[in-house]
Amino acid sequence: MHLSDLHFGRGANWERQRVLGEDLLRKLSTLRTERDVDLLFITGDIAFAGRSGDYEQATKFVESIRSALHLAVERIFVVPGNHDIDRTVSPTGLAQVRKDIEGQTPASLPKVLTAATANIIPRQAAYRAWVRDTLKRPTLVATDTTGYRETLELSGRPFPVQVIGLDTAWLSGGDDDHERLALNRARLGELLHDDDGHPLPGLRLGLCHHPFSWLRDGRECENLARDHLQILFRGHLHQPELAVQFSPGLTPLKCVTAGALFEPSGGDMNYAGFELVDLELDLTGRPVQAQIHFWGWRGDFWAPDNHVYPNAANGLVEWKWGS
């Protein structure tokens, strides 16, 4: 299951409860009787202002989803979004880092980003505390600002599942973030290889909040991701989207973007949705086909949704590799 942009801390509680309450949980419980859900991906903006009170609200919701899906906490994976940053913390430090990265080349940028980590991480303090102490997922709290990698062994699968969570949001500062963010290509390369420098085996899934086009080093990071990730799950756009990123001579990268799960009335969108993704894999973990089930809020209830892809009967899109 893939969802994004929950925005806890924004909007009236009654409205949020109406959208994310009993009908959603009832539908998920029914879906759980039809299929096993192996993983829950939340690709950022759990909160709205990156403060501890926002995450207190989010905890109850995530636990209710986990319970409805009969999912162990170890199967939950999250990455931060731009609203998981407390923008009141260290604005001067952020301004200095943004100034420092101006004019840097792809070769020099990673060193500058690494040096900036200690001054910027406190802006994510509430998010990191929530993931580590409340969600009980300390391995998802990276020691730097690039991300994490976790390897899973799923029952009945003769290959490992690699989940690589990327923090595209750490340099977020407002609504003018386009091309002012960065990831750190050198550290990304480490996450996408084993300790001996070899490509990771098995199924390789990436999570991030922003499209790579929002990053100063986005082209370099995207080219690297194409060669090593099979699917990238992301958020931020507030509309669901399936995209294939092409570049001559490189492996295409399939990207699955979730719509915002909740945005209050009067917000910048009027769609709420999530996705269920069923993967057919070969014996090495390579994807053969994906079935993406789009679900949307219809004003009074949740249902299969085809408003983005009108030809998707019952909200189902089939995506074959090599096509």
Score class of each variant (00 low, 15 high):
291 Q>A: 14
290 A>K: 07
309 Y>N: 13
161 V>T: 15
37 V>S: 10
300 D>H: 09
114 T>K: 05
174 G>R: 12
29 S>M: 08
156 G>P: 13
235 G>S: 05
275 E>N: 15
156 G>F: 13
235 G>N: 04
137 R>N: 14
165 G>L: 08
278 D>Q: 14
120 I>H: 01
149 R>N: 08
127 Y>N: 08
119 N>H: 06
24 L>S: 06
105 T>C: 08
307 H>F: 06
55 Y>H: 11
63 E>R: 14
118 A>W: 00
114 T>S: 11
143 T>V: 09
235 G>I: 03
239 Q>E: 09
260 A>W: 00
32 R>Q: 14
87 R>T: 09
223 N>F: 05
61 F>H: 13
2 H>G: 10
256 V>M: 13
22 E>Y: 01
101 I>M: 15
264 P>S: 10
280 E>T: 15
73 V>E: 07
87 R>S: 09
106 P>A: 07
81 G>R: 01
233 F>W: 04
134 T>S: 15
61 F>I: 09
281 L>E: 09
169 A>L: 05
54 D>T: 10
262 F>Y: 15
288 V>Y: 01
238 H>L: 01
53 G>E: 15
8 F>C: 04
125 A>F: 07
266 G>P: 07
70 H>I: 02
318 E>R: 14
319 W>H: 14
98 R>D: 01
247 S>L: 11
42 I>Q: 06
239 Q>I: 08
309 Y>M: 07
242 L>H: 13
